[in-house]
Design a protein around this nucleic acid. Structure first.
Lengths: 130, 130
DNA sequence: CTTGACCTTCCAGTGACTGGAAGCCCTATG
DNA sequence: CATAGGGCTTCCAGTCACTGGAAGGTCAAG
């Protein structure tokens, strides 16, 4: 398979796939014309990476996950720990965004949004007081 | 005030303040020795920026907000529109993270996390099937 | 006079791509 | 057979908002 086919099938842009090769996540073969030549196993890895990235794992996490995946003797605890740590980070991020949302939502609702200049949003930003 | 004092009072690192000057958000004076010399108005702007950034506004949004703040004839609608757009982005982001969290949480709970190699997390990443 | 804390500028790196330029390769059509 | 197009290659630069570090000037205290 050439990169276009793999991109289609893995649901990743060609650029991203080249990047993943650059950083050593995959090592496709090369055809005589210099084109990358992907095996089924490469496609499989790329799909794996796509799903891990969609769950928000960092590239370095993905590297570890791939290594664990290919190590048939890994302990499931190693995987679970990694996933749990990531889950905690996501939950922290959600909490942080929710706090932003709450404040912002309050400000937006308190602003008339008309032609007059008076604006509680700016007042709050300026003074830190509501 | 020197940069250290302002950093303290605005709750921003000196590096960040220099960066804000670089990109034209503030323009402190200069002392004869070359040190930046901050007025109260600079501190005020920095605190404004700190609060806007804490609410997740981008630097470009902050630039606009500062301009609106300093324009006494602005319409509050302009501010509200910007804030509303940002609020929507935050809500999208929260929804996306929550979806990640839900999937990930399910996977984590389905994994024994012991010494055995069998791991539903990796199986899911590998196949996209639960 | 020296020490140490401050300040300065400039350069490079972060994460994970993404856009674009310059140029080779392959297939199909006129 | 020439050419047009689409796909492939590499390499370089840009994104966003800082952050770290090096090399060196300045200032107040002891």
């Amino acid at each position: 398979m050439n990169i276009g086919d793999v991109a289609q099938r893995a649901g990743l842009p060609p650029k991203t796939i080249r990047y993943y090769e650059d950083i050593g996540l995959i090592t496709p073969l090369r055809d005589t014309n210099g084109y990358r030549l992907f095996r089924e196993s490469d496609l499989h890895k790329l799909a794996f990476l796509g799903r891990a990235r969609a769950l928000g794992f960092t590239i370095e996490d993905c590297r570890t996950l791939l290594a664990l995946y290919e190590d048939n003797t890994r302990a499931s605890a190693d995987v679970k720990d990694l996933a749990q740590a990531h889950l905690t980070k996501i939950e922290d991020k959600i909490a942080q965004l929710q706090s932003m949302r709450d404040t912002l939502s309050e400000l937006v609702h308190s602003c008339a949004g008309d032609n007059r200049p008076n604006c509680p949003i700016l007042s709050d930003l300026a003074t830190g007081q509501h």
